[in-house]
Design a protein around this nucleic acid. Sequence first.
RNA 1: CGGGGUGUAGCGUAGCCCGGUAGCGCGCCUGGUUUGGGACCAGGAUGUCGGAGGUUCGAAUCCUCUCACCCCGACCA
Length: 572
Amino acid sequence: MRISQFFLSTTKEAPAEAELTSHQLMLRAGMIRRLGSGLYTWMPLGLRVLRKVEAIVREEMNRAGAIELLMPAIQPAELWQETGRWAVFGPQMLKITDRHQRDFCFGPTHEEVITDIARRELNSYKQLPITFYQVQTKFRDEIRPRFGVMRAREFLMKDAYSFHADAEGLDATYQTMYAAYSRIFTRLGLKFRAVAADTGAIGGSGSHEFHVLADSGEDGIAFCQASDYAANIEMAEAFAPAAARAAPAEAMRAVDTPKQTTCEAVAALLGIELTRTVKLLAVMVGEKLVVVLVRGDHSLNEVKLGKVSGMADFRFATEAEIRAAFNCPPGFLGPVGLDRAQIRVIADHSVAALSDFVCGANKPKFHTAGVNWGRDLPEPDLIADIRNVVVGDTSPDGQGTLELCRGIEVGHIFKLGDKYSEALGAQFLDEQGQRRAFVMGCYGIGVSRIVGAAIEQGHDARGIIFPPALAPFDLVIVPMGYHRNAEVKSAADALYAELLAAGVDVALDDRDERPGVMFADMELIGIPHRVVVSERGLKEAQLEYRARTDSEASFMPLADAGAELARRVRAG
RNA sequence: CGGGGUGUAGCGUAGCCCGGUAGCGCGCCUGGUUUGGGACCAGGAUGUCGGAGGUUCGAAUCCUCUCACCCCGACCA
């Protein structure tokens, strides 16, 4: 591509709307332009990158045996009413009415449509297993679109769905997809991690998320260096303390805490470890108060608490409800002296293992120290893992300790089971001639999000550093004086032609711009390889080469430059 | 949804408090000089000041409504 024939639209300054580095760089590089909240045009430069991601995803899906199709973006309400998700999906779903007043939605996902295909097209176990996929534009009306293309409302997704006769068949395809996803993200040149994930509302027996590691990621990940354990923070299991609870050593006593309403402040005042304080969280299940206890240095994991029996629909108590129940404002609440016939107490393992701990006194401006289970208050009604893991916790697989990092979710694979096939009556005949519902899996990749995630992971002060597989061009030729010097022009043109012939996705910056402008643009848009053709270089029969990640340029002989550059491009 | 903020030329912004009809940088156009790190000189174009209504002799500026966008939050007592 000759840049003079292309469309570049770079800027020095980023629009004020962009907060995240990758978002700013995508705007400055002219990859995307915002049309509305969460809606982006992929400009020619950005589209090149998006297409490269798509191409790799397609190749690997095909390699894994999945078959591409394309379903409508607009879907009739009836299908969603069959599975009950028309109501469940709620405001995240963009609903549309046609001229006949019939309801439709802009598809946020395609389980219903693909299961409808399956119920019509797949009749026999002999057709199984089979996996379909598509690359489709989805729309989800996010509460708060942000970070540009990373949490957009309209976005490009690769979604795949597999159909099986039984759970074993699903397991096999799930493993195949897991491997395919690992290949995809490796080929894309991203630092990523597959993590065990919560199956959430979709249900099912297994799920992994693929995260691109980045500090700005929206998700917390716990992982272990000593093993390959990695889990979404919602899922990561906290090990119960191994040691038995120590015997009481202190007498229970009230302590003055006039202004100390947090565990941190109380611990500081008393000069004790934060790990010896207990935090009380008042939650409501219906109209009934439940007391939840975690250690002062820990935080509640709401997903885990929601899985505790009877706690599925809990919510946090309001301040008014707290005052009504405890006759005490928040900040001084504790588990001692509660009417346990009325109030259920759920304690985290780490709290149940404490002795001589400190908690609120249920009396303004007082806490209680030296508290012991069994002596000063009854044992908890339930002891469970309800906290978030913290750095240094023992890994659930027993090997080493946990570390935490942030990630951007770019892929998610699910064992769906028969939820959708049952709801939609999608069945096949097995070897015995029996009708059975399909066992299903689904596998998503956020194609457009990957572009943002890659930039989040690869950039410097000059701009984007694309992994070679994603860059809009493999290599750029920057001639010094293309429009003034015939030798430079012919050398640049010759090299351009040679690289094109060698199959390199090469750009020739033949704009009549000053060198500084060309250098700055090409660095901003993240081209991995740059070669400068100049009059003084040609005198020595040399070209100047610099990789985007190099700190300095180097020289190479003009004679075999084409072959050498093609080699470097292929090496990545 | 709750809270906060911002809307002035394509982008970034000043002006707003204290009303007098809009300025700067980048970009864009013309001419010239330049040409290895976002050039310089000269000239030029581009603004319904987000929209509607109101107050006023007069509104970017004050008031009311509205729209859009951004940020934070929607859990740790």
